[in-house]
């Protein structure tokens, strides 16, 4: 329907970023004539100021994003952010003339690189995951899927009531112990810690029921053993209900996982950005202190 942030205004900011890199390289190259390149020459200093301002401006996105109703287009800002943020690698390298060592300044550089890389990851996540999400949901919203799941659960319980206690217990506990979501890590990894309880002579034992697979197997085993006609039909229904639940649960879990990734990277990107801002201040103070 419309292009993504990278395509904004025909890639205007890509060209601006390339221009910025070219200019930076120009300045860097100018130094070769006179002194060995470093952050200390006027050219190096200019590059440093540009890089510093860029960092401020990149951080300003966090504020701009929340200035609502001002018009303009946040998409345009993101486009500029991404291209100029990437160009920052070049600008800062030209500024420092590639002199990286084991000191506070290099720490600052690597911190900045971490932000940039996290930003790149974020951008690729933004570009790729929404399509997958759309495919998983198949035009339904998460709420609708959950509603459908609820319906399947009610139907399962009803069918289970027609079965022996061991089957109905397995189905009931499987429903109770189906886990979706959970801790952040579990959401992001899409881990499934569902379980159910199988009846034994002394109560029940808990079995892992990842992806509802074990329950399906249990039901199919029961189906081959039962002689009761009513139970047979019930089991057949239960298996199809469980298979449908399995499909929906997979979708929900993927949905939660993808939604998670779409947000999780920002929890790395933003705190590190603020750290970079602080490091920038330290970098400037230290540099001028030891001038």
């Amino acid at each position: 329907m419309s292009g993504n942030a990278l395509q904004y205004a025909g890639g205007r900011y890509l060209w601006i970023a390339i221009g910025l890199l070219a200019a930076s390289f120009g300045l860097y190259w100018l130094q070769e004539e006179t002194t060995p390149p470093s952050g200390g020459t006027w050219q190096g200093l200019t590059l440093g100021i540009v890089a510093g301002l860029l960092i401020f401006w990149l951080n300003y996105l966090g504020v701009r994003k929340r200035r609502y109703g001002q018009g303009g287009s946040l998409k345009g800002w993101v486009s500029a952010h991404v291209y100029l943020g990437t160009a920052l690698i070049g600008v800062s390298l030209f500024h420092s003339a590639g002199q990286l060592g084991w000191n506070i300044h290099s720490l600052f550089f690597w911190l900045m690189m971490a932000v940039i890389i996290s930003g790149m990851i974020g951008m690729s996540v933004y570009l790729s995951l929404p399509r997958r999400l759309s495919a998983i949901r198949k035009t339904r919203s998460r709420a609708e899927i959950l509603e459908e799941l609820e319906g399947l659960e009610l139907a399962s319980l009803e069918r289970a009531a027609d079965c022996s206690e061991s089957i109905s217990m397995a189905v009931r506990t499987a429903l109770e112990q189906t886990r979706v979501g959970g801790s952040v890590a579990r959401q992001l990894l899409g881990r499934d810690r569902s379980s159910f309880e199988e009846m034994t002579s002394d109560g029940g034992i808990r079995r892992s029921n990842q992806d509802q697979q074990r329950l399906l197997r249990f039901l199919s085993e029961q189906a081959t053993q039962t002689r009761d006609a009513k139970e047979t039909t019930a089991l057949r229904h239960l298996m199809s209900l469980t298979a449908r639940r399995q499909d929906l649960l997979r979708r929900v879990r993927r949905d939660v996982q993808i939604q998670g990734w779409l947000q999780a990277w920002l929890y790395v990107h933003v705190p590190l950005s603020i750290a970079v801002l602080l490091a920038l201040v330290v970098h400037i103070v230290v540099v001028f202190w030891y001038w």
């Binding site: 329907m1 419309s2 292009g3 993504n4 942030a5 904004y8 994003k65 609502y68 109703g69 001002q70 018009g71 303009g72 287009s73 946040l74 998409k75 800002w77 993101v78 933004y126 929404p130």
Partner: peptide, 21 residues
């Protein structure tokens, strides 16, 4: 439709990816 905001609809201008149109 944010008719009284000079910048037009806030939902659209606040969308970072251009999905909202």
């Amino acid at each position: 439709a944010c008719f009284d905001l000079p910048g037009g609809p806030a939902c659209v201008s606040a969308c970072p990816t251009g999905a909202a149109q």
